[in-house]
Structures are given as structure tokens and as C-alpha cells.
């Protein structure tokens, strides 16, 4: 009984320190969110519609959306493009983070590399989209220059029967998806790498020293020490990439407007189109948002669950230790 009281004595600071976040959240986030949620159950569409009602079948919009072919395609695309970009992204980021934090293999100029790798993230999505559009331009563009000259070369040495024609990258689905995934990779791998590095640097060097004394090699150190200790930050990376990836909007929208033939139509682009391009189907957009939200929440919950045990156990342990310390301190105070 006594300990509980003492534990609580600091609890009010938890509330106090949360006030700024909560106030701003209530003001700027809650209203728009509730507004969106509610719209999903109504017939609110059209510009400045002040006369909307709840539908008799509250889930009518949700059913329409789940039946919507473009929505289904957009979900598939989103997941596909996310997997295509995230797999190489996390692999590369982990690899680079390991290289740059390696204690025994100092890479010269690693400061330079670290700085440079993050740079693509600095450019606005709009600029990147303009640039890649120019790169893959058809029928004349840098990539097609390469295609044509390689084709010419292969033709000359009799591998190809006739020289290749320029390839319209942006009319075929798979290339378009690959390009979008590559742009996502390029703009985010540095970001992920930096997050992981800062996580690794947060691990106490003592542990590494101990490992080195035990004679473990770099590979072992990485898997046995770095990765497990990185778990909380790794969870952060996975969750934010998942959320960011499933909400992917800028590049698909700006690069090719979700085309060709809906190949790069992501769910967020779909939602935006519902709400703003032409018919102001706010209710359907809201319903689609809610569905996307549920999907993201479920996937995140699964991730949390997978990564849960040690993270949580550790957390609990620290909490207990803190309580014990508090108890000690309290006791100390009493005796003073």
C-alpha cells in the first residue's frame, strides 16, 4: 500500500509533461479525424454540402469502397510497391549502419558517406518526380539513349537482329512500379540508415567491449549484440515505414498520376482522387481512409506483437528498478 502511494507521487508529472501534446492534438488533430470518421457514414458529397445525412445503412460507403475495383487494385499496388522498396531499403540501411558503426573496420570518409546517403531525402518529392520523369522520358531521354546505344552495340556484334527501339517505360506497368519503388528506396534508405545508426550509438559501448574481450567476431557481434539491442529502434523503423509506405502519396501522384493503367495508383492517391478530383465524394474518401487506417492498425499491431516480448520485458524491468529506486529515495528522504 505504502509503495503504491509513493510510486504515484511522481505520476502527476507524466500527465503534466503530456499536456502540450494533448492540447495541440485535441485542437488540430482530433476535430479533423472525427470529422472524417463521421463523414464515412453519411451521404456528404459535393462542394460545400451543408445538407448531409446519416445513411440508413451506416456501412453503405464501406461496402461500395470494398467493391471498388480501383480501390482493390490500389491496395495491391501499395503493398507491392512497399515490399519492393522496403526490403532493399532495410537491408541496405542495416548493412550500412553495421559498416559505419563497426569498431574494428574503420571506413575512411564514413562521415562523408553518411552525410551523402541522407541527401536524397532532402529534395522535395516534386523535384524528384520531375527529375525521374525526365530520366525516363520517351522517345528521347537519358535512359532511352542508353537503351538505344546498347541495342546498337549488340546489333553490331550480331547478338541482336535489329537495333532496339526506345522503350516507353511509362506506358508499361511493371517498369513504372519498379521506378516508383526505386525512387522510394532512394529517398528513404539514408533516413532509415541514420535512424539505425543513432540507435546503435545508443547501445552502451561496454557491451561491445565485453563482446570483444570474449573474442566474438564482427558478424557475431552484429547479430548477437547490435540487432537485439536495436529492437526498440527497429520496431520504430518497421512501424513508421509500414505507416509511411501504406500512406505513400507524393511520388506515385507526382510521378505519373497513379498511371499507367492504375499501376502506381496507391491507396492514398485513390483517396485523394475520391475527395478532390472532380466529384467531391467526401463520404467515400472518408470510408476508404477508415479502411486503410484499420488495415494499417492491424498490421502494426501484428508487428508490435511480434517484437513485443523482450521490448516489453525490458521496459517492465526498468520500471520496477525505477520504483525500487524511488522507494529507496523516499526512504532516504524520510530519514534525512
Amino acid at each position: 500500500m505504502k509503495t503504491k502511494l509513493k510510486g504515484v507521487s511522481y505520476a502527476k508529472w507524466g500527465y503534466i509533461f503530456s499536456i502540450p501534446f494533448i492540447v495541440i492534438f485535441l485542437l488540430f488533430s482530433l476535430y479533423p479525424t472525427i470529422y472524417t470518421t463521421i463523414l464515412g457514414f453519411t451521404d456528404c458529397k459535393g462542394l460545400n454540402n451543408t445538407d448531409w445525412h446519416f445513411l440508413d445503412d451506416p456501412f453503405a460507403n464501406f461496402k461500395t469502397i470494398l467493391d471498388n475495383n480501383s480501390f482493390k487494385t490500389s491496395l495491391k499496388n501499395t503493398v507491392l510497391i512497399w515490399v519492393l522498396n522496403f526490403t532493399p531499403q532495410i537491408t541496405m540501411a542495416l548493412l550500412l549502419a553495421a559498416i559505419f558503426t563497426s569498431h574494428r573496420n574503420e571506413i575512411k570518409g564514413k562521415g562523408f558517406f553518411k552525410v551523402v546517403f541522407y541527401m536524397p531525402n532532402i529534395i522535395t518529392a516534386a523535384s524528384v518526380a520531375i527529375l525521374f520523369n525526365a530520366l525516363f522520358a520517351y522517345p528521347v531521354g537519358p535512359m532511352n539513349d542508353i537503351v538505344v546505344s546498347v541495342g546498337e552495340f549488340l546489333h553490331k556484334i550480331n547478338i541482336l537482329d535489329e537495333p532496339t527501339k526506345p522503350y516507353n517505360f511509362l506506358v508499361y506497368k511493371v517498369p513504372a512500379q519498379l521506378i516508383v519503388a526505386f525512387i522510394q528506396f532512394l529517398t528513404w534508405y539514408g533516413n532509415t540508415m541514420i535512424v539505425l545508426i543513432s540507435g546503435i550509438l545508443g547501445i552502451s559501448p561496454d557491451i561491445y567491449e565485453a563482446a570483444e574481450i570474449d573474442g566474438s567476431n564482427g558478424w557475431q557481434t552484429f547479430w548477437k549484440i547490435t540487432v537485439p539491442n536495436l529492437k526498440t529502434v527497429l520496431l520504430y523503423t518497421l512501424i513508421t515505414s509500414l505507416v509511411g509506405g501504406l500512406n505513400m502519396y507524393d511520388i506515385p501522384k507526382l510521378f505519373n498520376e497513379g498511371g499507367p493503367d492504375n499501376a502506381t495508383l496507391t491507396t492514398s492517391v485513390f483517396i485523394y482522387n475520391q475527395a478532390f478530383s472532380g466529384n467531391y465524394l467526401y463520404n467515400r474518401a472518408a470510408a476508404a481512409s477508415m479502411i486503410l487506417f484499420v488495415i494499417i492498425a492491424v498490421l502494426s499491431a501484428i508487428l508490435f506483437w511480434i517484437m513485443r516480448d523482450r521490448d516489453e520485458a525490458r521496459f517492465e524491468k526498468e520500471k520496477k528498478m525505477a520504483r525500487r529506486e524511488a522507494k529507496k529515495k523516499e526512504a532516504a528522504n524520510k530519514w534525512q
Binding site: 458529397k45 475495383n69 480501383s70 480501390f71 478530383s277 465524394l281
Partner: peptide, 10 residues
Amino acid sequence: KSNVSDNLAI
């Protein structure tokens, strides 16, 4: 036709 209906409800 399906895209128009999906996007604009027309």
C-alpha cells in the same frame, strides 16, 4: 468505364 465509375461515381 470501370475507372470512371470508381473515381467519380458516374
